[in-house]
Write a protein that binds this DNA or RNA. Structure first.
Lengths: 168, 168
DNA sequence: ATAAAGTTTCAGAAAATTTTGAAAGTTCAG
DNA sequence: CTGAACTTTCAAAATTTTCTGAAACTTTAT
């Protein structure tokens, strides 16, 4: 595969992957583009490479910066803003993991906990089944949540992964 | 919290969670409903509980059955089809994990591998940066892929999680 | 065979999400 | 200040995804 083709496919695939995981296509593609760029890119560079509007670039970049996986960079003697990606895959995956767990997993875990601890549920067969399932889900999601924290939220994720690989 | 309220919130939250993770809301809500149901539900039961159309129930249920996390069940003396959820959280999460990894992660892993092994890339600074990033992503995603396999695709996931909890 | 009961399909409607583009806002050199 | 360079905003348009509902199809009891 030639460079041009590989680059195009990589950006395209990263975009598809993103949308399947609830991150929008443009955001994912901009990250992809910045990940492989050897130097900072401006809004105009990104608009041109991905053939998308200024507004779209601006909004997507803002989110990427909010997530902490893209940084603003000012080049001397140039008023334009440039952007670079966090290139350490462990660092940015930690950040994505943190944001997504916080936003998406935690509310569910809290609801499950609250329901699981409710004293008002438990008499009829229907309510018993409900309580039982909620307790199981609660136990499961707390465990997964803990693992996610250890893997993605602590700086030891990489080490942990290596240990798992070594021992299992 | 009272049962009615808890049930409603659970189904609602499960739906939101589903859509954030790329599973559609209705599918997630039907699974939630079946998870806590003490007996099999018919298409009509689901339509009524979730206030959605027959077509929607039919399509969503088909997917859930395809994924292997909901089963058809026929009740004696009744022509209607009934449905029950796989209630073992480990079993259904294995299945969801398998389907999603296969569909969503594997294509990316394969592309990264292919690019990483390509001999045609590597001269200019741009191409070097590209190759370097692809190699890192490849290493990372293969590791995460392996972990996902061990956690979700093998029947030892639960044990593995306990071990991790114990030792780390 | 027929008709009632139940299931599936899918074109179009509705809803949700994403993107555009132009106007408003900001910054800064002169 | 002023205006050129650049960034941000956001209403409306485009696109994508989901849902509906009615017709077609299948199954089964009589």
């Amino acid at each position: 595969m030639k460079y041009g083709e590989a680059k195009e496919k990589f950006i395209e695939t990263w975009g598809v992957l993103g949308s399947q995981w609830g991150i929008n296509k443009t955001m994912a593609q901009i990250q992809a583009l910045l990940l492989i760029a050897p130097k900072p890119l401006s809004t105009d560079d990104i608009m041109e490479e991905l053939a998308i509007s200024r507004g779209n670039v601006n909004m997507s970049i803002r989110q990427l910066v909010d997530w902490g996986i893209v940084y603003k960079k000012n080049l001397a003697g140039d008023r334009k803003e440039y952007f670079i990606a966090e290139k350490d895959v462990w660092k940015w995956s930690h950040k994505v993991g943190a944001v997504r767990k916080q936003r998406e997993l935690n509310p569910a875990i809290e609801l499950l906990k609250e329901i699981a601890n409710s004293k008002e549920i438990g008499k009829t067969e229907e309510e018993k089944e409900f309580a039982k399932q909620i307790k199981e889900l609660n136990a499961f999601s707390s465990q997964i949540g803990d693992l996610a924290d250890k893997l993605f939220l602590s700086p030891r994720g990489e080490l942990l992964l290596k240990l798992i690989k070594m021992f299992l």
